[in-house]
């Protein structure tokens, strides 16, 4: 679609806002509607638009697949390790109360961290899925 000038311009204009909105949804998650799942998908959709407009190669320069794989794995690890941290600090698994001296602060820390992990994984997995399918078509 690289010859559609209007799409390209609008896309270029929109992508930063989409990313920003993704981050908002991500980090607003512990106060209002939002969270890692939604944010991850929104974040990834920016990359999908980028790929559609500027091609797979350009997108993969920004986010190579091997980095995405690491990010996806580390997102899961962040989630799991927050739970372990709570466990090591004396609570049950994923009991955020124990992450800080104050239980409420602990809840905040825990939710933000876990949602961050979720967001990372969802965003990178969505991108990976898209790239994989897109790349498959070209190869064959």
């Amino acid at each position: 679609m690289s010859d559609h000038l209007i799409l390209r311009i609008v896309g270029k204009f929109l992508i930063p806002y989409i990313l920003l909105f993704g981050l908002y949804v991500q980090f607003h998650g512990d106060f209002g509607p939002g969270g890692g799942f939604q944010a991850g998908v929104i974040f990834a959709s920016a990359f999908v638009i980028h790929t559609l407009l500027f091609g797979l190669e350009s997108a993969e320069r920004i986010a190579p697949q091997w980095i995405l794989k690491i990010v996806a794995a580390s997102g899961v690890l962040i989630y799991a390790l927050v739970g372990v941290a709570a466990m090591l600090m004396g609570g049950n698994y994923l009991d955020y109360d124990f992450l800080a001296a104050d239980p409420i602060a602990g809840q905040h820390i825990g939710i933000i961290l876990v949602e961050f992990g979720v967001g990372l994984t969802v965003a990178s997995v969505m991108m990976l899925l898209f790239f994989t399918f897109a790349g498959r078509g070209e190869a064959s």
Binding site: K69, A80, G83, V84, Y93
Partner: peptide, 13 residues
């Protein structure tokens, strides 16, 4: 549960 949960992402890397 935790053993495979931690293991899976690490194994993929």
């Amino acid at each position: 549960i935790l053993a495979p949960l931690l293991g899976a992402p690490v194994a993929s890397l």
